Amino acid sequence: MKVDSNKLSTILYSNKLDVKKFENLLSNNDQGYKFFWLEAILKLIAQNRQLFTFEDVIDEMIVGAWRMVTYYHLRLGHTVNGNAENFLEHAIRILYECSKKEIGNKTPSKDRLMFLIKKYQDNLMEDKLHLTDYVPYRLIKPFVEKEGKEYIDRKTYGRFIAYLNAFTKANHEFFYDIVDAKNPLMRKIRLNEEWVNFIIQNYAVIMGWLRFNKALFIQDRNPGVPGVMYKVAPETEEKRKSLKNARELWIATVDVTGRPLYEIYTGNELSIDEFDLDHFVPRSYVSNDELWNLTPMAKNLNSSKNNKLPDRRYIKDFVKYNYYLYSLIFANDSKDQAAILKHYFDRCENQHLNAVWATEKLYIPGNTEEQFRNILEENLSLVYDSAKLQEYEEWVI
């Protein structure tokens, strides 16, 4: 659900709680930590928990942002000389490097990630401690605004906690208070019961509002990257659409010409019963199933390629083979063959033919081979280079 980033208080109402203050939790969010901290708290609430440590929240943050950083290659904050300055992103990158031999190409389950976080705790400690410095206190700044900034950082956390403990909870003002401990990671967040009930009753709206704002923030940190809204909340993303129509189009080329499919990466012939359609630029980057980015490929090799970029030299082979498909539909001397393939091509329209440059310039009658290849190579190269800048790993056959 897309909610205006400043209008949550006009949608939700409580005669006991100050929803406007809750809405302002996400203000002044330079590194984006507040999005992930608050989202982790909401998830812990959904697990029927009202008391948990800072470390519990941070571990939940790592799990929640894992796929964004390792699979979608999104930046969560600023970088210096290509290195993450965002402590959450940095922790995830360290954990990935420590564990990538164990997890292979698969995205680990939450339980597996939690195990790996504990296993490599020493490697993550510095980043985890940095995440306790300010965020837990600054998140609830709107609730203590009248008291000034002296209560919202690690240097005065003692006074801040004392203030919270001394404050009467009769009016249920605070979202949470903090139970002190010598180890910063062991300090506990104690949620206000009235706020917990309010969040549970409005969970879907609040989570939608949070993720919408988080998507806007991540988009700003990753200009030009497509489909950020889906990548920010992959657990709610619609399941990947079937490639059935595109697959049937390629199979139809075999039926009408008698020529087998082949694989651009190896030159091997492919069985029409066992091939996959490969996204040349990984789907995790393009967030679509456009025909101009698909090519037949053996299943086992496709599994090996997984979420990686092929060598740039394959662009020309890819473009050449896609012109072969185009020529059978739009430049075929056999009208019968062209009519059959045009039928299958038209069935791809809604799902595989959406980019304006592709529908208005590429897949139209009259393109010469040179025109088609120049248009596709230029546009594919732009997407390829952009994915390369997002640090997609290169695939080696």
Rank of each mutant, 00 (worst) to 15 (best):
S27D: 15
T53S: 15
K316T: 03
K182D: 15
L210N: 13
Y203W: 14
Y285K: 05
G158K: 14
T168L: 06
N165Q: 06
E393D: 04
D385I: 01
D278W: 07
L249V: 08
N354Y: 00
K128Q: 08
E173D: 09
L25K: 01
I152A: 02
S242N: 12
K141W: 14
L210P: 11
R240F: 05
N332Y: 07
L74W: 07
M297F: 03
M125V: 07
K118R: 06
N354T: 12
Y344V: 05
E235I: 02
P282Q: 03
P365E: 03
R313W: 01
N332G: 05
L261F: 04
L12K: 11
I364K: 07
Y384N: 07
R373W: 00
D333G: 10
F35A: 06
D220G: 14
G77V: 11
E238G: 12
F22I: 01
E23G: 00
A331W: 01
L88M: 12
D278Y: 01
F54S: 10
D317M: 13
N183K: 11
M114K: 15
K16T: 14
S27A: 14
E85S: 15
F212G: 14
N288V: 05
Y13K: 10
P310S: 03
L216I: 12
K100W: 01
L325Y: 06
S5H: 05
K239C: 01
N183G: 00
H172T: 14
I94V: 14
F198C: 07
V196D: 04
F174P: 01
G267V: 05
A387W: 05
E360V: 06
